[in-house]
Design a protein around this nucleic acid. Structure first.
Lengths: 194, 194, 194, 194
DNA sequence: CATGAATGAGAGTTCATTCAT
DNA sequence: GATGAATGAACTCTCATTCAT
């Protein structure tokens, strides 16, 4: 595949992303993507064989980007609480955005492809999240910012809550106020004095 | 509709429930249900017009049953902590059961039918859960069992966590140990001395 | 399948037979048959799953009919030579008919589904033909009509020749004269005095 | 066309031959040949317009080679019986070889392109075969090796039998024993004393 | 009420053929 | 000459939905 083809491939992925964001996974057909891209039926098959393959590729790319992003920001001199807040704010932003979210597509896909496998994208993301938060809490304890007897439990708690809010956001909506209240509740449980 | 028809209608709902439990919502076709029921194609249409209508009816019935169930058990003389534990155990059981769970079907359905509407089944269940837990916590505080500065926040926290775990259970699996750890973490945050 | 459906099934088979006779096997699509029958796309699939299945069913029926036919005529009091001649004439008629012949379809099919298996329709027909002719020759020898040192070889010879002529008829045509000459040659080799 | 182009053309023909030998005619697509050759889609079209054209060219070449071959070997001093046997052995070898045989491809092609035309490759080959055998039989009669009242009929008989065996070999298989028996039967009918 | 044959729209997929580079 | 991306037609197969019986 030449230079041009790579551009087209990327174009297809970008366009398909919008389709997935709008319609989830199961309702998206190759035809939908073909039409969104404005290319020919056969043309799409030159690049991808199925909607599944396309979604997987999109997720792979996003995971890459997220990693890169994190790597860029984490080496700050902020306090643990600051970083945790930053992280939660980031999650909140993602949570509340309606358009552009692959959440539904991803869940729909993994409902039909449950794997306990550690390669499962969702699981990897979840585990990674827990680990990051746990580290932050421990750092916070060391610096005297936080008080917590069970950093691992607290970290899991936060990730489960985020997961729960993400789902609620996609099924019956969730307001910014609701998110803020819950995040505040979580921070209050950690911070030594507020 | 006569007696017999009602029986048949119920038979269809019961059978369809199994189909939804097995395949979720989007992958279930009228044909699937017809075949599972062993009735004629046209016969199904005499009772229901779409898979959506069938699922909605199933959910309506389940909600009814759940309410009845709760009403029966809540009037005990147990302590607040006992009741909360009971509630969490019930949730845990539901969480870990693979077969017979409509979880995936329900999420798949509501992904495609988001309504902020208070009639939204999921929302009603969530709100009801928060309220119940909040009451329990307040009762626990009153009886000296619990300590909690923000019962509403804690109640929401618990419900979000349950939601998060439910999803994880359906996408990449979750072990009993993981559930227990998190429930323990939650209880420890509430109970006065452990 | 009710009475009516059986009629329709038969109608499809009869119509498909014409299509196969005209276009062979490989060039016939389900669509071709649908259009020839004047039914809907999905309608055909109610009865048959593939062109292969349809052709096989047609062959099964034809074999049945042939058997019945034979059974009806063979109990005559004709001499062996008469019967053999009758048989050869029948073959000749089949050979020379352009329309309505499944020859090409059958060969095209079996080219792609070679089986040494005794269930192979072609093989069964061939073997049956050899046996019938062999019996006739032996009867002719007994009655003094024929002279033949190797009835089995002669019988095989006749069947191979018929096979060869059938093929030639379908690939570059064959005239009645050519067939007659060869059949005469064969009979001359058998009959005691001509 | 330059030297190089001729080489490439030949390479395509050689490669395509293998494809036809393996898959017959109708199942071979331009794509198959392109892939077998490892050249570009467009590249193939520079040399040939269709699978038909390619097969025709292959057959033209083979006919050429066969003619050359015959020309080389026929001028021996063997007896007619020897030469006929040699010829039959050659045919037998061809008959029994599985790989590398264009038989199926050729029949599949001519099933769909019947021409009574004398240019029809199959017909030319058949007629040529008859003529050669007839000449051999006549020579054999002259030398006292053979006895035959109808050399032309006998020659046709042999060619039809070969044709029939060729077909059977490709549809339900044929054993060497079966071929030998039939060839023996034929020779016995010709040779004066065995 | 109940049946199941029938329809037709629509999704997936493959390939011959063209054409800009 | 050669490439291979792109197109669009053709085919297979499935299913929601209707309707005569």
């Amino acid at each position: 595949m030449g230079e041009k083809s790579l551009q087209k491939r990327q174009y297809i992925l970008d366009t398909a992303r919008k389709v997935f964001a709008e319609k989830g996974f199961k309702s998206v057909s190759m035809k939908d993507i073909v039409e969104a891209c404005g290319i020919s039926r056969g043309g799409l098959y030159l690049y991808f064989d199925s909607t599944e393959q396309i979604l997987m590729e999109i997720l792979r790319m996003e995971a890459q980007e997220t990693d890169d992003l994190f790597a860029g920001h984490i080496s700050e001199e902020d306090t643990a609480a600051d970083i945790l807040l930053l992280f939660l704010k980031e999650q909140k932003k993602e949570l509340l955005q309606k358009k552009d979210s692959l959440t539904v597509a991803v869940y729909e896909y993994f409902f039909g492809h449950k794997t306990t496998d550690r390669n499962n994208t969702l699981r990897r993301q979840f585990d990674a999240g827990v680990k990051v938060i746990e580290k932050l809490i421990e750092a916070g304890i060391a610096s005297g910012e936080f008080y917590c007897e069970n950093p691992r439990g607290a970290a899991s708690n936060i990730m489960y809550v985020l997961e729960g809010m993400k789902i609620n956001a996609q099924t019956f909506g969730i307001t910014e106020k609701m998110v803020d209240e819950q995040l505040l509740y979580i921070m209050e449980g950690l911070v030594v004095d507020v």
